[in-house]
Simulated assay, not measured.
Amino acid sequence: MLNMFNRLLSGKPLAALLLSMAAASAYSAPKTVLVVGDSLSAEYGLSRGTGWVALAEQKLKQNHIDAVVVNASVSGETTSGGRSRLPALLTKYKPDVVVIELGANDGLRGLPVVAAQANLRAMNDAATQAKARVMLIGMRMPPNYGRDYADKFFAMYGTLSKDIKAPLVPFMLDGIADKPQMFQPDRLHPLAEAHPAILANIWPVLQKTIKAK
C-alpha cells in the first residue's frame, strides 16, 4: 500500500495505477476448471466427494495450485447433451479450462463415431471462443461392440486431440478396466477405491493444462 501511494505521489497517473492494480488482481485470481462429463465423473453410485473430480480438487490444493473445480457432469450424458449444455455453463462459470469427459454413452448406444466427434469439436469451438483451454479425456469400448467400431471410437479422441491441439488423456480407465473387482455390480461404474487410480491417469495432463493457461 505504501508503494502504491509513493508511485501516485511521484506523478504516475491515477488511471495507469488503477489499471496496473487490476491486472495484478486478475493475474492472482484462482483459475476455474469446468468438468463436463458423464456418470464416470458424476460420482454415480458413490458417496459425495469420493470421485476423481473431487479428488482432483483436493490434490490441486495440496499442490498449492490456485484453482476452483466445477463438476458439471451428468449421469447418462452424451456428447450431444454436453454440446447443448456447454454454452450456458461457459456463460455462468467463465472457466479457464474445460475438461471434456464424454463419449462413453455414445459408444454404449452404438451411435455414429463421426457424430460424437462433431459434437466434441463443437464443444471445443465454443470453449475456445470463450477463451477457455480444452482438455479431452478418452474412453475405450468393450470388445463385444465389435473390433471395427471399438477401434474407430478410440482413435476418434487421438485424431480430434491433434486437430484441435487439445491435451488428451487417452483412456481414463487404463489399468482399471481389466480388473472386475474394481467395479460396481453393473460392471460399468468404478468403485470409489478405483478413483484414485483414475485420477493418477488424469492428473499429469490436468496439472500441465491448468499451469499452461
Results as ranks from 00 to 15, higher is better:
Asp106Phe: 06
Ala118Cys: 07
Tyr27Leu: 08
Ala24Cys: 08
Leu120Arg: 01
Val114Tyr: 11
Ser20Pro: 00
Asn63Met: 11
Ser41Thr: 11
Asp106Arg: 07
Tyr93Asn: 12
Ala115Gly: 07
Tyr93Trp: 13
Asn119Ile: 02
Leu108Gln: 13
Ser28Ile: 07
Val33Asp: 02
Val99Gln: 04
Ser73Gly: 09
Asn105Glu: 10
Ala22Arg: 11
Gly45Thr: 12
Gln117Val: 10
Ala22Glu: 05
Glu77Gln: 13
Ile100Arg: 00
Ala104Ser: 14
Ala118Ile: 03
Asn63Pro: 01
Ala56Met: 13
Ala23Gln: 10
Val36Gln: 02
Ser75Ala: 14
Ser25Tyr: 07
Ala67Val: 03
Leu19Pro: 01
Glu57Ala: 15
Leu46Cys: 11
Ala56Phe: 03
Val69Pro: 04
Leu102Ile: 08
Ala56Pro: 02
Val114Ala: 15
Leu60Phe: 14
Ser47Ile: 14
Leu19Cys: 06
Gly51Arg: 03
Thr50Val: 11
Gly76Trp: 11
Ala54Arg: 09
Gln58Asn: 14
Leu18Met: 14
Asp106Gln: 10
Asp106Asn: 15
Ser25Cys: 07
Asp106Lys: 10
Gly107Lys: 11
Ala115Phe: 06
Gly49Pro: 12
Ala54Pro: 08
Gly107Gln: 12
Val74Pro: 07
Thr32Asp: 01
Ser28His: 10
Val74Ile: 15
Ala24Asn: 12
Leu19Ser: 13
Tyr44Pro: 02
Val68Cys: 01
Gln58Arg: 15
Val53Ala: 03
Arg83Phe: 08
Lys31Gly: 08
Ser75Met: 06
Gly51Val: 02
Ala72Ser: 13
Leu55Lys: 12
Gly37Trp: 03
Gln117Glu: 15
Leu46Glu: 09
Gln58Met: 11
Lys61Trp: 04
Gly76Lys: 14
Val114Pro: 01
Ala42His: 00
Val99His: 03
Ser47Tyr: 14
Gly51His: 07
Ser80Arg: 15
Ser73Tyr: 05
Ala54Ile: 03
Ala42Gln: 10
Leu55His: 11
Lys61Thr: 09
Leu18Phe: 09
Trp52Ser: 06
Lys94Trp: 01
Thr50Ala: 15
Ala23Glu: 08
Asn119Gly: 10
Glu57Val: 02
Ala26Asn: 07
Gln58Trp: 04
Gly81Leu: 08
Val35Arg: 04
Gln62Phe: 10
Ala72Phe: 00
Leu55Gly: 12
Ala115Arg: 15
Asn119Arg: 11
Ile65Asn: 09
